[in-house]
Structures are given as structure tokens and as C-alpha cells.
Amino acid sequence: MFSFIVRRIAVAIPTLLILILISFVLMFAAPGGPFTNERPLPEAVMNNVMERYGLDDPYPVQMFNYVKNIVLHFDFGPSFQYRDRTVNDVIAQGFPVTLTYGFWSFVVAIGVGVSLGVAAAIRHNSWLDYLAVGISIGAQVLPNFVMAPILLLVFTLWLGWLPGGGWNGGQWNYVIMPVIALSTSYMASIARITRSSMLEVLNSGFIRTAKAKGLPMRRIIWRHALKPAMLPVLSYLGPAFVAMITGSVVVDVYFSTGGIGQFFVNSAFNRDYSVIMGITILVGALTILFNLLVDIAYAWIDPKIRY
């Protein structure tokens, strides 16, 4: 197990380097640059700006310096769009926000999704099953860019219960709508996966044996069925968790939460090279980390899996 983890981390480093390389190539291949403006800058001004940010160096030099600064100083460079801030500032400010609403979305998505899925599987083909399937399909087809404005209308304008946006240091009433908007579709997927995998497990031999031994249903579900039924859910959760804690541009745009989701998109529009890279690396590193955690969790849940 230990050597497995070491091996995975050793692979992670070249993976990240390749990610950086590809991102660099794509970034520089895109037309325009960070200082492309409706009023083209006079040459002298453009030269000053390019020199200040080292953008006049050849691409390989830029990439080498970039990686060097990260490795030696953990410095992801200045933002080109937000002149008063560095990429470290941008991430330090935005990531905790995203982490907070992403974490709660994850909790809600799992809690509600798994319960719905299990309930539907146990009462297969009953009204409860249909209701759960209905809810999850409904939640799946309602995209969050439709849900967000509806939530705003209902809870802010009509009922006046919740503030329409902002973060306010993560005060609970500012977190509710982002969490609902973000968690719904994940919740729906988790419910569907849980239901079908639970149905499969409930029809398998060892459950029949457990029933034959006369174990109470509750005990069968909790002790025997849930764990194996969670395997497919687990492989979904790794990437889903990373997606949630690295935010959602829709949530950030509609609720002005200030998370990094919007930076991910806006920095690409602004050609804010260093912010694009910083967030890409963050998301890449988190994805690698959580995939590793999922693999470890597999071994724990299913004794048949050995590394």
C-alpha cells in the first residue's frame, strides 16, 4: 500500500508538468494577449508592460521561469488583469470561499443523494421509488444557470428570506443558495448511481443468504449491502468532490460569492495567463490527490482490491 502511494505521487509530478506544458501551448495559441484592448496600446506602452511581466521572453524561457518560481518560492506570479494582486492573492481569497460552499454542497449531495437512492432501491417499483427517480431526473435536467435565477426570485425577491448575493465571510444565510444551486445535479447523479448499484447488490447471493439467515432488513442494508453498493458511487465522488470545491462559474456569477470558479472562466477570456495557470495547476493537483484518495478508499471498502 505504501509503495503504491509513493508510486502514485511520483507519477503525479510528470502529470502536472505535462498539464502545465499543454496549458501553456493552448494559452499562447489563443489569439490576443492579456493586454489586448479595444484601444490598442501604443508600442512603447506595450513594450513596458510586456517587459515588466517577462512576456517578451521566448515561450520556453517563460515556462521555465514560471515553473522555477513555483518550485523555489511557491510564487504563481502576478495577475495581469488585476494589477494590485498576485495569483497567490487571488487563490488565497477565492479558494476558501469555494471550498466552503463546495464542501457543504458535497455533504448535501451525498446525504440527500444516497438516502434517496437507497430508499428507492429498497422500495423498488413503489411510489417512493418513482418519487425518488422523479426528483433526481428533475434535478438533473434543471441546469444550475436556470435554477440560480429562480432561487434568487423566490428566496430574495418574493420571500425576502435570503440575501441575493455576496459572501459576507461565509455567514450561513449567504451560503444556502449557492449550496442548493451547486449540489442539486450532483445529488441527482448520486441518487441514480446509488439506486441502481443498490438494486444490483440486493439481488446478489450473499444478501439472499443473509435474508435466509433471518437477519432483519435494516441490519442487512447497513451492515452488508451499503458498503459494496457504494463502490460505483465512490468512483463518481472523487472527481465530483474536486469539481465542487473548485467551484462553479454559475454560482459565482449569479451569487457574487467571489469564489475561484469565475476566475477560471474569466481569466481565459482576459488572457490572464498566470491566473489561468495557477488555477489549472490547483485543479489538476486536487484531481490527482482525490483520485488517489478514492483508490485508497476502494481498498478499504472492498477487501478484494489489493495494490
Binding site: A148, P149, L152, L153, T156, L157, G160, P163, G164, G165, G166, D252, V253, Y254, F255, S256, G258, Q262
Partner: peptide, 18 residues
């Protein structure tokens, strides 16, 4: 100054008195 990217969200918040 509240930074609100979406103009419809901003309008809703205006109408809600924010």
C-alpha cells in the same frame, strides 16, 4: 460598490432593495 457579474441577478437584487 457590489460586484455583480450578471445584470439580471443585479436587477433582482435592486428590486429586493439591496
Amino acid at each position: 460598490a457590489l460586484i455583480i457579474n450578471d445584470e439580471n441577478a443585479a436587477l433582482t437584487r435592486y428590486l429586493a432593495g439591496e
